[in-house]
């Protein structure tokens, strides 16, 4: 059998393996998603039949309330993402370059949120940092009475989302850092680089791939969040997640809810594309 025929055959066999999951995804995910996206664009015409219409999108982008919600969502996403990296990178660096019991304890603490359901995190945070919560009581014990709770302010969901996103972020950063060999850092010291220089010129470039993955995955996770902003955040403006939920179930406007969902989907797919491209580039580099 010729080589091409062979690879064609094994190509078909490969496809057969993934046929079932792909079909399931197509039927239960792509098809309904496509239906609702099309539903936002193609509307029943008054005199019967269908017409193409951007009306619902025009409404969204001219409605200051919707725009404020979108802006709040972007703000929350970006702020949370930046803080997640700012908090986790030093921890990951510490754990990469320190061995010992303290590093293990810190790792366990940082991974702990992974095992706590989001709803419990929400209630715990409310009890801890909400008005009249633990934090306030503790602070007033030491004579500090001006504590303003972040609960129900834009910072509420940020705190919750950082909690929630920490384990994944840390794990990815640590795995990225573990690819930076001791020798390559020692070599940098050897030619005269100080700590900061090594961080900027050696470590960061070597982990850009991990940083990209962390950013893309967290972006996707944060942008579409419902629970944290719903439980911890303000109601006006609010994030897209609770906004969609309310538009759908309280306002009972499925068209506008689908429109919001489509816009959310488009923005998230940008992050998705960045993620996929980064993975593809990494595979190309590994092959050379």
């Amino acid at each position: 059998m010729s080589a091409t025929a062979m690879s064609l055959r094994s190509g078909w066999r490969g496809l057969a393996f993934i046929a079932i999951p792909v079909t399931a995804i197509a039927i239960f995910l792509f098809y309904p998603a496509a239906l609702s996206i099309i539903g936002t664009l193609v509307r029943p015409a008054p005199g019967g039949g269908y017409t193409f219409s951007l009306q619902s999108y025009i409404f969204f982008f001219t409605d200051s309330y919707s725009l404020a919600n979108l802006a709040r969502t972007l703000w929350t996403t970006v702020v949370t993402l930046v803080l997640l990296i700012a908090v986790n990178l030093p921890i990951a660096l510490y754990m990469r370059f320190t061995k010992g019991r303290l590093a293990a304890v810190i790792q366990a603490l940082a991974l702990f949120p992974m095992f706590v359901p989001g709803i419990i995190i929400c209630y715990a945070l409310i009890r801890y940092m909400g008005p009249n919560g633990w934090l306030q009581s503790l602070l007033s014990l030491v004579g500090f009475h001006h504590y303003a709770s972040p609960h129900l302010t834009p910072w509420g969901p940020v705190v919750g989302l950082i909690w929630d996103g920490m384990p994944l972020t840390l794990l990815i950063l640590i795995s990225g850092l573990s690819n930076v060999s001791d020798a390559s850092i020692e070599a940098a010291r050897d030619v005269g680089a100080g700590r900061l220089r090594i961080l900027v010129s050696i470590i960061t470039p070597e982990i850009t791939h991990s940083l990209l993955i962390v950013s893309a995955l967290n972006f996707l996770g944060i942008f579409g969040q419902v629970l944290m902003p719903f439980m911890l955040g303000p109601t006006n403006p609010e994030m897209m997640g609770p906004f969609m939920l309310r538009t759908f179930s309280s306002v009972r406007d499925p068209l506008q809810a689908s429109t919001q969902a489509t816009i959310t989907f488009l923005i998230c797919s940008l992050a998705g594309v960045a993620y996929v491209r980064s993975i593809a580039r990494r595979q190309r580099e590994d092959r050379t």
């Binding site: 060999s181 020798a183 940098a188």
Partner: peptide, 29 residues
């Protein structure tokens, strides 16, 4: 510390910085 010593070390393996070109590696110091 090593960054202030007049010594230079060749390591057993994998001590080149993979994100830099060969020139970048040699010129870094």
């Amino acid at each position: 510390p090593p960054e202030k010593r007049p010594t230079a070390m060749v390591f057993q393996s994998h001590a080149l910085w993979s994100h830099m070109t060969v020139e970048g590696n040699i010129g870094f110091g």
